[in-house]
């Protein structure tokens, strides 16, 4: 193995681990798998070691392409970015399995073209976007957002896309529309978690999410079609996903095929599965604990190994104070 010596003072770019080293690691893990008994210790990472064809070679990776976009000053933040290799290899996307590396491992042959995204329900002008529309209907821009997972880890990610309010405005919501409901594609052939209860964590698929219409119209609410300057890879929600920076990550639904405007509050996947743990709002809130763990702090995933001191205080609304007025007068410990 190649051992690269680095000083602690080396910053950001240098600290980003070379992809070849990651792949070296995978090869070693695969070797371990063949030691037979190694699998007794194995967790998800080693489980893959036993599958002969679960390869991460260059050729078998999903093909992404470069996007061109603007970079509005307002959304370029100072905090160091999470390295691309971490944001694209450490994901929750239960349609592809429950382990953090399952979404990457199991999604590389996912097909996104052709794609259909329907916006309908209580609208004057229902629309359907095809694959090319996703990138061409609106001017796309890059926004660097903090992402806070309900599991108390966080990342800083450069998304590429457009404001959700542009898309909704195009469909012309009727005055009776109060909520927006979202659905992930249902494709059990491509998504092992949808095919088997045991791979997909017992969730009733398709995954669904929802927002109040005023939340959805807030300029921060974002539809991403790309990340790190390129189109989204499947594990990050290709070809189009929601990004709600002031809410826990599970609100940011991936691989969306339908957006429906409704009069009533839509049912959402996690609050259906465990209503006492996950509410409809899911705003990042350090003062309201998850019933099983605290939300007061988070581990920021950047570069640096075990000794990187990255445990930081969680901020109200994940630091996006401008959304506070949406919830004035609401008891946020009740509407969690």
């Amino acid at each position: 193995m190649l051992i690269k010596k680095t000083k602690n003072s080396d910053e950001t770019e240098n600290n980003v681990t070379d992809e070849s080293i990651f792949n070296d690691r995978r090869r070693i893990i695969k070797g371990l798998g063949f030691a037979g008994m190694g699998s007794l210790l194995a967790s998800s990472q080693q489980a893959h070691a036993l599958s002969l064809f679960g390869s991460s070679d260059e050729d078998s990776l999903f093909k992404t392409r470069e996007l061109s976009f603007s970079k509005p000053e307002k959304y370029q933040i100072e905090e160091p970015l999470t390295p691309e290799l971490k944001a694209t290899r450490y994901n929750n996307f239960y349609e592809f399995g429950l382990g953090k590396d399952d979404p990457f491992e199991n999604s590389q042959s996912f097909s996104t073209d052709p794609w259909k995204l329907v916006i309908d329900g209580a609208v004057e002008n229902p629309i359907t976007l095809d694959y090319d529309d996703l990138y061409s209907l609106f001017d796309i821009e890059e926004r660097i957002y903090r992402l806070r997972c309900v599991e108390a880890w966080s990342m800083v990610i450069p998304w590429v896309g457009f404001s959700l309010n542009k898309l909704i405005a195009k469909a012309k919501p009727l005055s009776k529309a109060k909520y927006v409901s979202f659905r992930t594609v249902f494709s059990p052939k491509q998504m092992p978690g949808q095919k088997s209860r045991y791979v997909g964590g017992g969730i009733d698929y398709p995954y669904r999410e929802g927002l109040r219409l005023d939340e959805a119209m807030h300029p921060l609410s974002f539809m991403a079609v790309g990340v790190y300057g390129k189109t989204l890879p499947p594990q990050n929600g290709a070809p189009i996903r929601l990004v709600m920076p002031w809410k826990y990550g599970f609100k940011s639904i991936k691989s969306i095929v339908r957006i429906e405007l409704t009069e009533d509050e839509p049912k959402t996947t996690w609050s259906m599965l465990a209503p006492n743990e996950y509410g409809f709002y899911a705003n990042v809130n350090p003062k309201v604990s998850h019933p099983r763990w605290s939300q007061a702090k988070e581990r920021r995933i950047t570069s640096g190994g075990l000794l990187n001191r990255s445990r930081i205080d969680t901020q109200m609304f994940n630091g996006y104070d401008e959304v506070a007025s949406l919830y004035s007068g609401m008891d946020l410990s009740k509407y969690y």
């Binding site: 210790l41 290799l85 450490y90 953090k100 590396d101 990457f104 570069s303 190994g305 990187n308």
Partner: peptide
């Protein structure tokens, strides 16, 4: 196997070669 497992994972952890959060992993 056990000592090798420990040595490898800590080596990867300290040198930041684990994909995602090395602490959680």
């Amino acid at each position: 196997i056990c000592l090798g497992f420990i040595a490898l994972f800590y080596y990867w952890g300290f040198t930041d070669q684990l994909e995602g959060d090395p602490v959680k992993i």
